[in-house]
Design a protein around this nucleic acid. Structure first.
Lengths: 219, 219
DNA sequence: CCAAAAACAGGGTGATCATCCTGTTTATAA
DNA sequence: TTATAAACAGGATGATCACCCTGTTTTTGG
């Protein structure tokens, strides 16, 4: 009697399921608190399959960062800001949408990028660079939108890079507090502050100073 | 021949040394990445001594949060803001001082409170509450200073709670980026934005809404 | 059709980790 | 002085973890 297929090889699907589970676990419990055994059980896969697609836990986390976290920032922040009528309106809309979503679901897991950035930036240089690149792209998208507004005649008194840094900082910090308090209200509070924000133009004396610190990853 | 003292019991000193190395390790590597073996070796103590003062790792972390992290926020933020000529000046001075210190030491370890908040808030309710209390005290100190400024005739158009939330959020978020980029420049960039901040008064229609989300700690 | 590689299964392994336990030394109180 | 508790020493233990290895099944390329 002929044996039926015991397995259906589906490498893309398998890889996607692993990333799904890992993204979820790293967001909810963090990198170190998520064991590969947990992930294997949650994804319903074996150690051999996991090791085939991601030889180490670090490789898996790097894939989560570069593919999933970056995509989440793109979807949640960059695309909406680009599509908005202005940078200010885009930032406002994202804050509003995130606050509404958090209140709807009833708990706050925090920002995926900031969550991993805090846990992994000092642990490994590859992690740190990957995460820093996402922050940079996030800020650049907002600053570019401000510059586009200025080309269109608006936002005369706003320094694009400064506004972008402030928007990302306020969101990151507000989300940190919201997660710790399990209360999304601080997001709305901070949004109101940002809405009333007036930014004087950056003084144009010389290029913006940028002092990169010497790297030193501890132990 | 008489045996000399083999040991000098010093419970306070022992406890302090454990907290010293734990504070340092949790800040540099995080809670889960710091093993009790590492801490014992760094502090030069035995397992028996550690277990005597802190029966579990969680108890040790809780002590670090309640005694050391809270004290760090008090020393770095609350006391300087209270002593400043105004809330705005206090916030400015702290940003400036922290940025200068980071540039001096050449690397960025991030904010102790935010570091632990991100890793532990969702992991354990006791951790979360202890960390949320520190955030609350931090914001309250700044808001109180704004109210004092208003009693003295200044800051007429600023909502105290809103300004405090924004200041803490900007600092937390800027520090997150500074840590990930290993570059303190974003702190100065965000400070400039805060300096030019104008906050319209909060509308006084009714009490400030505060919607506390139902608790749901994952797994 | 037939190798060769890719995809997956599943048990093993050494290391690490938090906690516990028994015993010894030091301080305290009666 | 003496009993009692606190303070510390140091090894034991069971669980967990990331990674590896061998073998089997499926797909692919010639």
């Amino acid at each position: 009697m002929a044996m039926r297929k015991k397995r259906t090889n589906d490498p893309e699907g398998m890889r996607r399921r692993v990333l799904d589970v890992a993204e979820e676990a790293f967001q909810a419990r963090g990198y170190h608190a998520s064991s590969l055994g947990d992930l294997m059980a949650a994804a319903g896969i074996t150690g051999g399959a996991l090791h085939h697609h991601f030889p180490t836990k670090k490789a898996l986390a790097l894939a989560v960062i570069e593919e999933r976290v970056a995509a989440a920032v793109e979807e949640t922040w960059i695309a909406p800001v680009r599509a908005a009528s202005s940078a200010r309106e885009g930032v406002r809309a994202v804050f509003e949408a995130v606050a509404a979503e958090l209140e709807r679901q009833g708990y706050v897991r925090g920002c995926p990028l900031n969550n991993l950035a805090h846990e992994l930036s000092l642990a490994d240089a590859d992690f740190r660079v990957a995460l820093a690149d996402i922050f940079a792209g996030w800020r650049r998208a907002i600053a570019d939108k401000v510059r586009a507004d200025q080309q269109a005649g608006g936002e005369g008194g706003t320094d694009p890079d400064r506004f972008a840094a402030l928007a990302v900082a306020v969101y990151s910090g507000a989300m940190s507090m919201a997660k710790t308090a399990q209360d999304a209200g601080v997001l709305r509070e901070c949004l109101k502050g940002l809405e009333n924000l007036q930014l004087s133009p950056g003084r144009l004396v010389g290029k913006r100073r940028r002092r990169v610190l010497q790297r030193q990853i501890i132990r």
